[in-house]
């Protein structure tokens, strides 16, 4: 883990708000699925945490969603530009055995690398609508099956991913479920996995500062053997065992 200057190799718009970016980063070839990088954005005090979507040899793949001015700057970078990237950071997913990845929207990218790294994987991916869908071809290549859900029914199943998750887990055996997406979705997945007794790992998001565990801003309430405590998404996560996370419910 260190700060690296990385050349932008490609930058393709894949939805209205997000870009699929590849950077040359031989030093980060050992990044683990679920880890993230912290990218400097010119003119901003804070870096932007971006989950690692895939690692292919010396090439790191990042899907960046335009959320504000910082990520807007990032998605506007042209091929050939040099990006200042701190990483790889955080703790990633466990990928042994047969896994089911469950993604929601911009939570899908880190699950691609996890699916690829696993022994065998299936995917359930949810999006607002068909226009927000991303990485479907990649997931189809990496997984045995891919099930789709959209809120408005414009593609795949009309409804929530946790409904598909419940069906799937009642029919098939998995060693673990890996999930990343909006908090309400993660909370619903946790409920389903607890009921059906399948281990779940979730990747969390929180407003972040240093990215390395020094500034303590990205706090998350966790539950350990000795009761509740405050951990940090950047260092203790972003991936946590679902039973350790105190979702506010």
């Amino acid at each position: 883990m260190d700060v690296y200057k990385c050349t932008l190799l490609s930058n393709d718009k894949i939805t209205e708000t997000s870009c699929d970016m590849r950077v040359l980063a031989p030093e980060m070839a050992d990044a683990k699925p679920g880890q993230f990088v912290h990218v400097k954005c010119e003119g901003f005090t804070l870096r932007r945490p971006i989950s690692i979507c895939d690692v292919d040899g010396e090439v790191l793949r990042l899907v960046v969603d335009r959320r504000g001015k910082g990520t807007e700057w990032l998605t506007e970078q042209r091929v050939g530009a040099t990006l200042d990237i701190l990483g790889p950071l955080g703790r990633g997913f466990g990928t042994h055995g047969r896994v089911l990845v469950v993604g929601g929207g911009i939570g899908c990218p880190p699950l691609l690398y996890a699916a690829k790294a696993s022994d065998s994987a299936d995917a359930i991916l949810g999006f607002r609508n068909s226009a927000a869908m991303m990485l479907l071809g990649d997931f189809r290549d990496a997984c045995d099956t891919v099930q789709l859900a959209t809120d408005d029914g414009s593609a795949g199943f009309r409804g929530r991913v946790d409904e598909l998750l419940r069906r799937r887990l009642s029919e098939e055996k998995y060693d673990r479920v890996l999930s990343c997406g909006p908090t309400p979705m993660l909370r619903a997945c946790k409920r389903v996995c607890e009921e059906l007794g399948v281990p779940l790992e979730v990747s969390l998001e929180e407003r972040m500062g240093c990215g390395v565990g020094a500034c303590l801003v990205c706090a998350v309430k966790l539950r350990g053997a000795d009761g509740e405590y405050v951990g940090h998404v950047c260092k203790d996560g972003p991936v946590f065992k679902a039973e350790e996370v105190c979702f506010d419910d």
């Binding site: 500062g209 990205c218 998350v220």
Partner: peptide, 23 residues
């Protein structure tokens, strides 16, 4: 001390606000 609940950081023009609360 556990500190304050998150979010504990916000970006500002040329700076940040933090409310860690002495964790």
């Amino acid at each position: 001390r556990d500190g304050n609940p998150a979010p504990r950081i916000a970006e500002t023009p040329s700076g940040i606000l933090n409310s860690v609360g002495l964790q």
